[in-house]
Design a protein around this nucleic acid. Structure first.
Lengths: 338, 338
DNA sequence: TTGAAAGCGCTAACAG
DNA sequence: CTGTTAGCGCTTTCAA
């Protein structure tokens, strides 16, 4: 089967018997064109199935690509999937296309993705940065006018806008809630690596709440894993301690699921639990799961909005936007210690 | 702050005192360059922070963009989020970038997204097509060599590759499982619009199983909604029928959640349930949820693999790939009717 | 081993 | 109202 070449502007022009510029004028409604010419051009465009080449257009205009690049650690994490839909809800109206890549928690891969996006001349860069990576290499791009927005975690080595959850305050509220219900031994189920910004902030909030209540911080009550399974194991391990916790704070979505699984396996419905990040069906678990809910869609939308305002010329200094978390009471955090 | 122009190939060339072509040769390891020249070019590239402009490169080569376009109905649906990570796992190794857009179940929007992708000259197009849309307008592109792969549902009006779940067979097995456990009145909780391909196929599988068991099909037992809430309401309504179902098949992920919520609200732990599409925490629900699990990551990977083989010159006729579902027994489907 | 010229598809600037 | 020329940043072709 012969592979037909895609028609170009000049193909259309030739077909109609006008110059390329005239066709361009018709398509971009730029400058005056006689009704009849317009008509004939449009007809030829239809007939040939012509579609202007955006690459060529962007290049000629010497502008950035009308796309924004997004780097997330893992697309299949519902948190980031929802962040993406928040971003898209903002960018779509502006005719911006979304380029997405997963860093898979690998600094090399993150850098290579960012490199590709830069080579494509994206209009802006949104990223949930890898903790171990330095982002100083973006300094030149940023001062050349490329908007960079860090999402979920601040970046290292680069001053840029960021959009974060109220991690510390949220965790503090969650733990205070458990304390209010009489708990004195409260475990912390986090993720690994422990260097992750969100984990550190949430651990800080956990310690804040303990300190406010005059409770000692016990490292033995801090555990975690890489995934749901790891968090479930960690939960079960905490329960076998000599002086075990009567309540738990799980510090992110999969830790929350892991804690639920671990408690279910140990058949311990008496252990209170507050999760971080809402999870589906939290309401029908038994007991129903109390959580510190984040608002990932709002985070994505905020990040995109900031990037757009930068594109629109906002040159004010970099700022950090905090999206509030919300304690959603459903029951699991209100159990009393026995 | 002065916004610096990005350095170009000729900037680097000028800096080093060679021609643009020489710099190009160094960067692409194309043709002979003296070690010393190479050294000096590389140094200048580093110093200026030069990054070749991919748009210009693609254009000059007259090839497609090294990107593939993906249209999904809704990014925040974990099913599609997982499909995306499956796609990415395949494309990343090939240096392809992923362009993503949400159609939001709107035919206009789908078409505009596809239009944008085509204008960008993507190398391939993957999409979960809107049921109400005709995709005949892609015929010319396809015969011009653009790989098109439909995901999750076949497209309308266009012969193209597709990757689908074994919807009918999966539903049949799920319902047969309920029948095997003694159920004779089995409800179907689906999504709307009812024209959706997956719903139609799963309903067919449901009817297959009933027919095989000699059970009559009763339209009154078929209900559904647009989201979790709607499915929950539909579930509650089915339970109030004069001759209510003793078991349910929920036909997708949010219908499954809705059915779980509806049964929980009605406090009916005696009603058997088989969900379609696995959901998180299915194992710790009470009773634990039996599901017909799909494999969204495999679907994404298969779609990407097919697109790549087409790019590599595979001109065989369009084929439909079926990714098998798997009945995961956890308890909720094994309840006996009272 | 290196360079000059031409051109990918498009549009800005200027003529006509 | 319409056309011509030039050039965005890169690579191919051909020549030196």
């Amino acid at each position: 089967m012969p592979v037909a070449r895609r028609p170009t502007l000049s193909d259309v022009a030739q077909e109609v018997g006008v110059s390329a510029k005239t066709v361009s004028r018709v398509l971009n409604e730029d400058g005056p064109v006689s009704a009849e010419t317009r008509e004939r051009v449009m007809e030829a465009v239809q007939r040939l199935g012509f579609r202007p080449n955006l690459m060529a257009r962007h290049m000629r205009l010497g502008k950035s690509d009308t796309a924004i690049g997004l780097v997330v650690p893992d697309m299949s994490n519902p948190f980031f999937a929802t962040v993406v839909s928040g971003i898209e809800s903002v960018t779509h109206g502006r005719g911006l296309t979304l380029l997405i890549g997963s860093s898979a928690q690998d600094a090399e891969r993150e850098r290579s993705l960012v490199g590709t996006f830069l080579a494509r001349r994206v209009s802006a860069l949104l990223m949930a940065p890898i903790p171990s990576a330095d982002h100083g290499y973006l300094k030149a791009e940023r001062s050349a006018g490329l908007p960079v927005v860090f999402l979920d975690r601040p970046g290292t080595g680069l001053t840029a806008d960021s959009v974060l959850s109220s991690n510390r305050q949220g965790a503090r509220e969650g733990v205070a809630h458990l304390i209010r219900h009489g708990h004195r031994r409260i475990g912390f189920i986090g993720d690994t690596p422990t260097a992750l910004y969100t984990r550190r902030m949430r651990l800080r909030g956990y310690r804040d709440a303990l300190a406010e209540a005059g409770l000692a911080y016990d490292r033995a009550l801090v555990a975690g894993g890489q995934d749901v399974e790891g968090a479930a194991d960690a939960t079960e391990r905490l329960l076998t301690l000599a002086d075990p916790p009567t309540a738990l704070l799980a510090a992110n979505n999969f830790s929350s699921m892991g804690a639920v699984v671990g408690l279910a396996r140990a058949a311990r419905k008496d252990v209170a639990l507050v999760g971080f990040d809402d999870i589906p069906l939290a309401g029908v678990l038994e007991p129903a799961l109390t959580v510190v809910a984040q608002d990932p869609a709002a985070m994505g939308a905020a990040a995109a909005t900031i990037a757009l305002s930068r594109l629109d010329g906002d040159r004010s200094r970099a700022r950090s936007t905090e999206i509030p978390t919300r304690l959603v009471l459903r029951g699991s955090g209100e159990l009393r210690p026995r």
